[in-house]
Structures are given as C-alpha cells and as structure tokens.
C-alpha cells in the first residue's frame, strides 16, 4: 500500500504542476517540504493539494479519504510538512478504516 500511496501522490504532483509556473514545479520526492516554514505551497496550493489528493485517492486507491476534517487540520503543519509525512498520514488513516 505504501508504494501505491507514493505513486498516487506523484500523480497528484503531476496534476498540481499543470497549474503551477514551470519554474516553480513540485518534484516527485517524498522529502519535498510542502507546508510550514520551509514549505513550497501557499494556502491556495495547499487547498489544491488537499482536493486533488482526495480525488486521486478515490480514483487510484479506490478509497474515500477526507483531509479537511478537524483532526487533520489541527495538525496541518505536521501532516503536510513533506510529501513523505502526508504519505504516512494517509497510510495511517486508510489502515484505521481497515481496522474498523
């Protein structure tokens, strides 16, 4: 599942780059900082990341994912610190659903 999540997030990056200036493209690297002090995304970029990630999770993983709930937004800088932290969080959330 981890590899699938990473792959899904890379397709999210492809999608987001279609809207970003060519000299400001996001890279497909799990270490890439997203949000917070060293983050690349502004608030509009973060909104698009959330919306596209939810859409791609449904399309590519076949799993509904909500990233606008209070739990996620209360730790937004941790969850969206890098692409890797986002992947770990998605893994956690999807496994919780499996457990339930």
């Amino acid at each position: 599942m981890d590899a699938k999540i990473a792959q899904m997030l890379f397709s999210v990056i492809d999608e987001l780059n279609q809207m970003r200036p060519t000299d400001d493209h996001l890279v497909k690297d799990l270490e890439m900082p997203l949000s917070g002090d060293s983050g690349i995304l502004d608030s509009a970029g973060l909104i698009n990341l959330i919306a596209v990630t939810e859409q791609k999770a449904a399309e590519e993983l076949g799993r509904p994912l909500v990233l606008t709930d209070e739990r996620t937004l209360s730790q937004v800088n941790q969850v969206f610190q890098t692409l890797g932290t986002l992947a770990e969080y998605i893994h956690l959330r999807l496994n919780e659903k499996n457990d339930g």
């Binding site: 608030s43 509009a44 909104i47 698009n48 959330i50 919306a51 939810e54 606008t68």
Partner: peptide, 10 residues
C-alpha cells in the same frame, strides 16, 4: 466542487 468552494472560493 463544494470542497474547493468552501476551502478556496473555487
């Protein structure tokens, strides 16, 4: 997209 609307007025 209600999601984009409420988050970003899109």
């Amino acid at each position: 997209s209600p999601k984009l609307w409420y988050l970003g007025k899109i």
